[in-house]
Design a binder for these strands. Structure first.
Lengths: 344, 344
DNA sequence: ACAGGATAAGAAAGCGTTTTCTCACTGCCC
DNA sequence: GGGCAGTGAGAAAACGCTTTCTTATCCTGT
């Protein structure tokens, strides 16, 4: 008869009658409130285990005004970068007893704001990962999303910490590396238009071009996946560029795969660089020169920022800038003195 | 003065006083209950938008006894297979208005049961992804987790649909493929001990060996990541095997990378096969022969099974078996007539 | 021995919804 | 014109918990 009428699940009331005490006392025992007599506490605990009582988190959340859950909104769960951030976030949050609710916007930026709002209301805080929405919209909804942490995006709204990777610097480092190897004709395979991180790369390249008037940098429209790189092979070969900066490692891998099919030797004929240093980058053939982003760490850091906000620790909501680190591997090499035709 | 005293957030009560009606009426309007006068409904709606009222999902969940959220428990979020399942699940669930809560057990099987229970209580249903716990434990807790869907695992407990990939068949197909190419000395790089899918592969190999007494199959202990494959190079070369069945694509890629460093030519000197057909598999050099698992589809299917359970549609909780499909690419080739020393 | 202060546990009021129950009112028909 | 079905909206209970408020009891000090 332990089953309660309404939901069919064991509730605090069942434990109370079994132990012969009030709801309140059961609650106190379950929450380790020491103002309760040890004998009674023992009786309650015994009743609880016998009935296999487990507190209902929804009731608890309503009473406490917190859910012990945080949300993360990502533009595309298929992207290894976001997967890694999610993983780091999940692991760090779990250590503090928090769970994470995911919301994938599938790159439709118009849904992002609604998605974020809905997620936020079910959670104690939110991480917005490289949101695609406009600056204006982001600034407008940011206050209603607080506590909020931004990744790879900043906002003028107050009290919103940001973690941003300095893609601009990273792409400059990669370009300098190629120039140092003697390359004078570069090409950039851009990422998705509207991606803020792509914008940062473009800014970085502008700065680079300002310093190197002698270097030719061709721009290609793009995307962020294998197929983008794979499909860019012909355009890249036509351009005559010998040093290719791919938007990220995936694009670089797609490109290298396509070049291989065309019999183009990387790095002898063409050098290719990626971005992110995803785990696969060190296992491609040739291994991929890239700019390493401590991406798992980013997730953990995001949690700590969010935690501080949730705990209302005073906080100056700064922008943390991560510097990518050049990982020079085998996909980049010296430019050929005279550019010969690709063999094969 | 729209701010309510207690939580500081706008509640149904604020809308009620603003519109000059009762809580109940506001609730009715928000839930499109048509028994309310259109004029009043309009007034309530106006008040709601003016106050930017958004219903509190926790209160709603408590009253309704449902959370519109499902949980997924995975042993390791870093594993591309689980990432893909998560993605498929998330996408399918989102289409029906459900969110997903993730719980990563970080491969500690002792935590799995607790983790699953906690997740379940916050959700309307649960997907258990290749749980590492024992059959006995799984069967014991399964009823308390209902509605529950299992992936790559089955249980004797009633009413629990299972989706399993036939790894045993897949590994046999791969082995037959290698034998068909003339290989007579095979090696299997096993996965994590305790992984059910590894067990299925081993069973498949036993069946294969029973049919091919002439073929030599060496077993190696293993893991499921790059490093496992990369670290197995010496052992593989020592074994003299020319056809290597890697536990999965990651292991295969690690192995190929290591073989490349040793100057061993794949597939001329040694053939390598993977398992799963992760997206990267078609971009490795050489491209990877593997057994394709329709992994994204699995997530979607898991959601549909779970949805049927949540909706209490009558259901015979069957085991759905997915047959892997052989993807023959460039990493497998004819065995050399005489086995010569690897060049380099 | 009795007032006063702890102390421990029950009663009840929230938390923010939904929903049943109840009631007032409209309009219909005989 | 008066009961009666029907309608629409408010009051209140319910969901399962935490916590304040209240009260009974016991202990201490004078």
């Amino acid at each position: 008869m332990a089953r309660k009428s309404a939901t069919g699940r064991i509730g605090i009331a069942d434990v109370a009658v079994k132990a012969g005490v009030s709801h309140a006392t059961v609650s106190r025992v379950m929450n380790d409130n020491f103002t309760v007599d040890p004998d009674i506490a023992a009786r309650v605990r015994a009743a609880a285990v016998e009935l296999k009582y487990q507190p209902n988190p929804v009731g608890r959340s309503l009473a406490l005004g917190k859910t012990d859950t945080i949300g993360i909104v990502v533009p595309d769960l298929a992207n290894p970068t976001f997967q890694a951030i999610l993983r780091g976030l999940s692991r760090a949050a779990a250590e503090d007893g928090y769970r994470v609710l995911i919301a994938d916007s599938f790159e439709v930026s118009s849904e992002e704001a609604i998605l974020a709002g809905e997620a936020r209301r079910r959670c104690d805080g939110l991480v917005l990962c490289a949101p695609r929405m406009s600056d204006a919209e982001l600034e407008e909804i940011a206050p209603s999303l607080h506590p909020l942490v931004l990744i790879n995006r900043t906002t003028a709204a107050a009290g919103v910490p940001s973690l941003v990777v300095d893609y601009g610097q990273g792409v400059q480092d990669l370009a300098e590396h190629l120039v140092g190897l003697g390359h004078t004709r570069l090409a950039f395979l851009a990422g998705p238009t509207g991606s803020a991180s792509n914008g940062l790369r473009l800014e970085g390249l502008e700065a680079f071009k300002a310093r190197h008037a002698d270097v030719d940098v061709t721009m290609f429209d793009g995307g962020s996946d294998f197929d983008t790189g794979h499909g860019a092979v012909d355009a890249v070969l036509d351009s005559g560029a010998t040093g290719i900066l791919a938007f990220n490692d995936l694009v670089a891998m797609g490109l290298m795969s396509g070049l291989h099919e065309h019999g183009v030797n990387v790095p002898v004929d063409i050098s290719v660089t990626g971005f992110d240093d995803i785990p696969f980058a060190r296992y491609t053939t040739p291994t991929l020169t890239t700019a390493a982003v401590p991406i798992a760490e980013l997730g953990g850091h995001a949690w700590r920022e969010l935690r501080a906000l949730i705990r209302k620790e005073d906080h100056d909501a700064p922008v943390t800038r991560y510097q990518p680190r050049l990982e020079i591997r085998a996909s980049s090499g010296p430019a050929k003195a005279p550019r010969t035709a690709a063999h094969g």
